[in-house]
Design a protein around this nucleic acid. Structure first.
Length: 571
RNA sequence: GCCCUCAUAGCUCAGUUGGAUAGAGCGCGCCCCUCCUAAGGGUGAAACCUGCGUUCGACUCGCGGUGGGGGUACCA
């Protein structure tokens, strides 16, 4: 199918004014309905043609031969406004939806591979609310990239290696806990979390504990069997809880390759750095200097010889390139780590890995918590200022359940649906704004489900499903009279549906799920308005209108899915 | 100090890649359930941090301020 933009461009070019390739980037979609579907500003030509834009627009309008599907063109104040035939638009959009269903607006495979690293929580700590961001942004990006034609490798780069484990080990042994298999097997994240905070507290009194932790990690890294047993137990306990939450959220990964996975690969990295003469010894540590990029040094090895996360990220990047031969590799990590990624990418550059330009840090704003003196600052798991993810999910689900009891007490599987709506609400709240925006967390707004929220979008989907259910039959494309779908409400809704492909492309280009979240709101809004104004069941226009309802439902269902929201059918 | 990032209505945010009269939600004022889920629809008041610059045209791009947040060698 030839796009409207293209046929307009061809027609305009035929008048001998604009060149065809000049037109498409200039075409915009006016916000005013009275300005048509596409608008071409003619100001750019004023200089070369030595004419007023107003005159140019009028001349083109009088000479142009309208392509198929356009009903009129109108010159106004130097703009050229194009109007699409309403029934032509209805037919071309809805036929495409009918033919492609959930994959309407998706792109053909492009033979490119993208690796997306997201969620990547630290083992030994409970998931805090801020982990929702990386998890859901990454989850949505993975779905968006797939829709855009990419092969996607979803990687959970678990933080299961590093000094943190030294801390846990030190604390565990210091508290003289049992280390028999049964006890280790029944460990919970909660206990580990407490162990963590006790370490932080204790190390304030005894700073030498920090050294003990580093030593313990060093011992772990050099292969101490007993320490490794403890480490495995800590890891397993966390993973169990992690999987429970991921399942509940509908999130999954192709690879759970944590930092420890790269442990055997690190000596090669260090050797290469040495061979290429990139590593220098400074302040007792092994570093790569990055002065030429106006950056501080990248730390490769501590004074006791153990590695840091930059070392492991280098090994991981090299491994991923070899394993997946990616065209892009994304790191969905908060903006506080942008320096770290800049350093890692530049070290790769210095190592001669020319694919370092395919590595992208996809930063997002941090969750801010209000402290007692009223200032907003980054929450800390350690000090307990950050809320736990499972607590927030639980509170959201509970609140939704009271809604259901009030509005639709007969609903089946109330509790399960409430959880799905609750999680979707939190997810949507996280995705609806540009990812770089900081999020000020407070319980009231996190649990506010009125207005532009997940439940609003889900409700639109539910109402569409409800109409379809009550109709009891589905309409075939061949039986639709397109002329019926030309009133203002149908037309506005169809226009929204027609933009799906554009939105997917844009969301993918700028790695921004909020593009689709805003789009979901647009669909929901147009759908709510449509079914409020155009009665479907029992009306003379029932067939055509029901077909529009079906089409809208399919489009919305997939958009919800691309965002990682549950497209529920009853609430 | 240096680096990154954000600034639009009372509050929380959109703004189609530089285009015409800057849009929503919450809150505030009204209206609409004998009507497919009122978790809805309609309607009113209300805004581009500041100064230069680029441009036919700037909320959007560039430079300088101001304010919030984050980062800045052995945590991740």
């Amino acid at each position: 199918m030839i796009s409207f933009e293209e046929s307009i461009a061809t027609a305009v070019a035929a008048t001998g004014t604009f060149k065809k390739e000049e037109v498409i980037p200039l075409l915009s979609i006016p916000q005013e309905t009275t300005h048509g579907n596409f608008s071409l500003p003619c100001f750019a030509l004023a200089k070369t043609l030595r004419k007023a834009p107003k005159i140019i627009a009028e001349e083109i309008a009088s000479q142009i031969v309208l392509p198929l599907g356009l009903s009129k063109v109108e010159p106004v104040n130097g703009y050229l406004n194009f109007f699409i035939d309403r029934d032509f638009l209805a037919q071309s959009v809805l036929e495409a939806v009918a033919a492609t269903q959930l994959s309407y607006g998706h792109f053909a495979p492009n033979n490119k591979t993208v690796v997306i690293d997201y969620s990547s929580p630290n083992i030994g700590k409970e998931l805090a609310f801020h982990h929702l961001r990386s998890t859901m942004i990454g989850n949505s990006l993975a779905r968006i990239y797939k829709a855009a034609g990419y092969r996607v490798e979803r990687v959970n780069h678990l933080g299961d290696w590093g000094t943190a484990f030294g801390k846990l080990i030190v604390m565990y042994l210091r508290e003289d806990r049992k280390t028999d298999p049964a006890t280790l097997d029944s460990l919970t994240v909660k206990e580990l979390n407490i162990l963590y905070s006790s370490f932080s507290k204790a190390s304030k009194e005894e700073p030498e504990l920090e050294d003990a932790a580093r030593a313990a990690f060093s011992k772990l890294e050099t292969g101490d069997v007993f320490y490794r047993t403890l480490w495995l137990a800590f890891r397993a306990a966390t993973l169990k809880e992690l999987m429970r939450i991921y399942n509940m959220m509908g999130v999954s990964f192709d690879h759970y390759t944590g930092e420890s996975f790269y442990e055997p690969l690190m000596p090669a990295v260090i050797e290469e750095l040495q061979q290429k003469n990139l590593m220098t010894h400074s302040q007792e540590r092994d570093v790569v200097m990055l002065d030429e990029f106006n950056l501080g040094p990248c730390l490769i090895r501590k004074s006791d010889g153990s590695t840091l996360y930059a070392t492991r990220d280098l090994a991981a990047a090299i491994y991923r390139k070899k394993e997946f031969n990616f065209d892009k590799c994304l790191y969905v990590v908060d903006l506080g780590q942008s320096l770290h990624f800049k350093q890692v990418f530049h070290v790769l550059e210095k190592m001669g890995r020319e694919w370092y330009t395919d590595m992208y840090h996809i930063p997002f704003g941090v969750i801010l918590n209000q402290s007692e003196d009223g200032k907003w600052e980054k929450g800390k798991t350690r000090t307990g200022t950050a809320s736990l993810l499972r607590d927030v999910i639980e509170a959201a689900s509970e609140k939704i359940l009271t809604f259901i009891d009030e509005k639709n007490p007969e609903l089946e599987n109330k509790a399960a649906v409430a959880t799905q709506i609750g999680i979707s609400a939190l997810t949507f709240n996280d995705l609806k704004n540009r990812r770089l925006m900081d999020v000020k967390f407070d319980w009231d707004s996190a649990l506010s489900f009125e207005g532009a929220t997940g439940p609003y979008v889900q409700n639109a989907h539910v109402r569409l499903c409800s109409i379809m259910r009550k109709a009891g039959y589905t309409v075939n494309v061949a039986d639709v009279d397109w002329k019926i779908l030309t009133d203002d409400y149908s037309y506005e809704l169809i226009k929204v549906l027609s933009r799906k492909g554009d939105r997917i492309r844009q969301a993918c280009e700028i790695d921004e799920p909020s593009v689709l979240a805003q789009y979901a709101l647009e669909i929901a809004e147009a759908a709510h308005r449509y079914i409020h104004n155009d009665r479907v069941l029992g009306s003379p226009e029932e067939k055509a209108r029901l077909f529009l309802v079906q089409s809208t439902q399919v489009v919305l269902e997939n958009v919800l899915d691309l965002l990682g929201l549950f497209p529920i059918r009853a609430m």
